[in-house]
Simulated assay, not measured.
Amino acid sequence: MDMTELRLVPGTPSAVLSALTGVLDGSGTPFAPVPADRAAAERVRQAVAPDEPLETDDCAVVLGTSGSSGEPKGVLLSKAALVASASATHDRLGGPGQWLLPMHPYFVGGLQILTRSVLAGLSPVVAADHPSFSAAAGVMTAARRYTAMVPTQLSRYLDTEVEALRSFDAIVIGGAAMPLELKQRAAAAGVTAIPAYGMTETGSGCVYAGEPLQGTRLALDDGRILISGPTLFSGYRLRPELTAEVFQDGWFRTQDRGRLVDGRLQVIGRLDDVVISGGVNVTLPAVQARLLEHEGVGDAVVLGVPDAEWGTRVVAFVVGRTGQAGREELRDFVAETLPRTWAPRDVVQLDALPMLASGKVDRQLLLERLR
């Protein structure tokens, strides 16, 4: 097969591990893992365009992004980027070890668990092959043991699998911001949970607990987080104009806002998390954080929705913890510490937030509920 061609492989742990081992040792060809779900698979195919020649000759894997806040894109990752990310992660955590895979390997977090496993020369343990997380952890044999998961998984396992969580030397938390309450719960339980910041374009997490991994550099441009280093992707599949837009002078310009506090990166939110509603700038993460402080709110997401009267209408999607807190109660609660003009205009009560397979909230599906 011509190395400029891209092959699709099933997004199962065994198939991805086999394909990944091939590109890492030089015997395989570039591939794109595809989930089993038909709709998700079709989005991946559109993003990775398997019938078109690859733009670069150093591509190892093409991953389709989840499209949680926009259209999916194909992300070109080289062998060098994958290896740099995996090696820097092991260096930060204290050395190579055995990894447990509790997530899908067609997302970068799961893919990199497999990359680290190949480099460590240790077989990964697939959580789905065992009746429980504890059972999966129980079959691990290496002296050093690691896993990675999204905050939602950690929260659930803290309720049911604490002993298993404690058995890991480190648990990398990515895919979404790790709430302060969750950090405190993990610490109180004796669980070593390390929040990581990164994305598909950075080869998975590249900043651990606010500090960049070896080789990664950070900068801020009017609050926008810029990243440079060996783990960065090569570009977007067949999107040279978008690639040129996000790569400038060797820096990847993310869509996230942040700040440096005592040399550590604090991620504040996405650039589009500040909306103008009725002429007032509203910081959506601040409203969301305040709602989560309400005793009756178990989970919440706050979005800006186009509105003819307000320009953008602030809408809160809320999962009740002990019954449903009403719209006016929640608006008043927000207004106790934030400007009244920031209080959500609408409150949508849900039994649970819709989640993508990546562990991120499906914002597009929430917006569709309002149409």
Rank of each mutant, 00 (worst) to 15 (best):
S68N: 13
S85L: 08
A135M: 08
R92D: 01
S68C: 12
I113V: 14
V108G: 06
A86Q: 09
R92S: 11
K183S: 15
K73H: 10
R116F: 05
V172T: 09
V62A: 02
R144A: 13
A164W: 00
L180D: 15
V126A: 11
E161F: 02
L54A: 10
H90W: 15
V108I: 14
V139R: 01
A80H: 13
L119W: 05
A135G: 10
G174K: 12
F133L: 12
L93I: 14
F133V: 09
G67V: 10
A49F: 03
E163S: 11
D57A: 14
F107R: 05
E71T: 15
T115G: 01
L111Y: 02
E52L: 13
S117D: 14
K79W: 03
L165R: 04
P179C: 00
T65S: 14
E52M: 11
V108Y: 00
R116G: 07
D169G: 14
P72G: 09
V108R: 09
S85Y: 08
L114R: 05
G74P: 13
L114E: 10
A120D: 11
Y106C: 14
P179L: 00
G94N: 10
R116P: 03
R166L: 09
G67Y: 02
V162M: 07
L114Y: 06
V118I: 15
L93H: 07
T65A: 04
A49Y: 02
L76N: 06
S66R: 07
L100R: 00
T152R: 14
L180V: 15
A143I: 01
T160V: 12
F133H: 03
E52I: 14
L165M: 09
C59W: 06
A84S: 14
A60P: 12
